[in-house]
Each structure stands twice: as C-alpha cells, then as structure tokens.
C-alpha cells in the first residue's frame, strides 16, 4: 500500500475527519433534543400532538436519509434562504436520526413503572414536572445504549454529506482519489479513519449493554 497518499494528503484527510466528527456530534445533540420532544409528543394525553408524533416517526423512518438531506439542501433555497451542504446535511442527519431516538426514548419512558407517575401527580407535580424530574432521569439510563448505537450510525451516515458537497471525509477522499488515480489505497485510509471512531464506540456500547443486562 502506498502510504505516501496518506502523508501527502494528510491535511485533506484531517479536514474531512474533523468535519465528519463535528457533523456527527452536532447531529447527535440535535437529534436528541428533537427526539426527546417527539417522544414526549407521542405519549402526551393531547391527541393532536400524539398524532403528529406518530406521523413524524412513521414518515421519517420510512424514507431514505439521502432524501431527507436533499430536502434540506434544496428546500430552504426554494424558500429563499439557502443552507450550505454541511449545514443542510447536519440538519438532515438530525431530523432523520431523531425519529429513531424518539422511539428509543419512548421505550425508555414506558419502561418506568406507571405507579411512579401516579405518585408524582398525586404529590402535586404537574405533567411537565413529572416528566422532567421523575420519568426522564430514569428513562435516560435505559436510553444510553440505543443512543450510543445511533451515534455510531450518525458517524457512518454522515458520509452522505459528500453528495451535497458537505466537506466530510468522503468528500475529501473523492478529491484525493481523482488526483492520485489510486481509488483502492485512498479509500482504505478513509475506512481506517471511520474505524478509529466507530470500533471503540461499538466496543464501549457492548460493555455497557452487558452491564445493564447483568444488573437486571
């Protein structure tokens, strides 16, 4: 293998690597906030919100990520405020992932015994207070493993940014491979960069899941 490809284009690789991490982290925060909101919609007593929550999750989960990214790339500009590839891609990633996170959080909330809600409500907390102070803190513990897995997915999925010129790892790799005509070597190094991020995370997630299993 030709290591000069890595050393000659190290700057490009690193810039892409940095943007891939940044986009994944931003999308993790975005999708968590959005997902938590949708999860609450889905279990709230208000019928309209519940329907919206269910519709959102069902729709987003059944369309491709790339399509969501394209919608955020072309949509806003049709309305007069163009977003660049990195931002449109990161928003698309957040929206797409939020549907999956919403389901994970909902499952986590459902796992908290009903009696606790009743106890909290009868001791004078309102619905929102019960959620924020009693239910969510417990649900979060159960939600961490699926959230971790979603983060791994986010890192991998952020590669679609390349299709809207989002300056991620794959984007720079395309540039390097058309310059060097060495597709194989170029992308083996790209794979290494992804694995450096995803393999340790996968390992950590498995350890965490084991611990949870042992506890119960």
């Amino acid at each position: 293998m030709d290591f000069s490809i890595l050393t000659d284009h190290f700057g490009s690789y690193m810039e892409g690597f940095y943007n891939t991490i940044l986009s994944s982290l931003l999308a993790l925060c975005g999708s968590f906030l959005l997902g938590a909101l949708i999860a609450i919609f889905r279990i709230t007593p208000v019928k309209g919100l519940r329907w919206f929550g269910t519709g959102y999750v069902e729709f987003i989960r059944n369309i491709p990520l790339l399509l969501v990214v394209y919608i955020f790339f072309y949509g806003p500009s049709a309305l007069g405020f163009p977003l660049d590839g990195f931002i449109a891609g990161t928003i698309g990633l957040s929206v797409y992932t939020s549907a999956f996170i919403a389901e994970a959080i909902r499952a986590g909330i459902m796992a908290v015994p009903k009696g606790q809600t009743e106890a909290a409500r009868s001791s004078g907390l309102n619905y929102a207070q019960t959620m924020v102070h009693i239910i969510l803190p417990q649900a979060i513990k159960l939600v961490i493993p699926p959230l971790g897995n979603q983060f791994i997915n986010l890192i991998k999925n952020s590669s679609v940014l390349t299709l809207v010129a989002g300056l991620d790892l794959m984007y720079f790799a395309d540039g390097i491979s058309t310059e060097t005509y060495r597709t194989f070597d170029t992308y083996i190094f790209v794979a290494m960069f992804y694995l450096v991020l995803t393999l340790p995370l996968s390992y950590a997630m498995r350890v965490w899941e084991r611990r949870l299993q042992r506890k119960y």
Binding site: I152, K156, V160, T183, F184, Y187, I188
Partner: peptide, 20 residues
C-alpha cells in the same frame, strides 16, 4: 469491520476500488 463502516464507502469501494 463491516458494521462499523459507512455503506456509502462500501458501495463505492466495491465498484471502483476492488477492480484495482
């Protein structure tokens, strides 16, 4: 290894890197 790589990379790799 496969699970931890982006599919986009795998598709492109199989089509355009493996021939090398």
């Amino acid at each position: 290894l496969i699970r931890n790589l982006p599919l986009l990379l795998i598709i492109f790799f199989i089509r355009f890197a493996l021939p090398e």
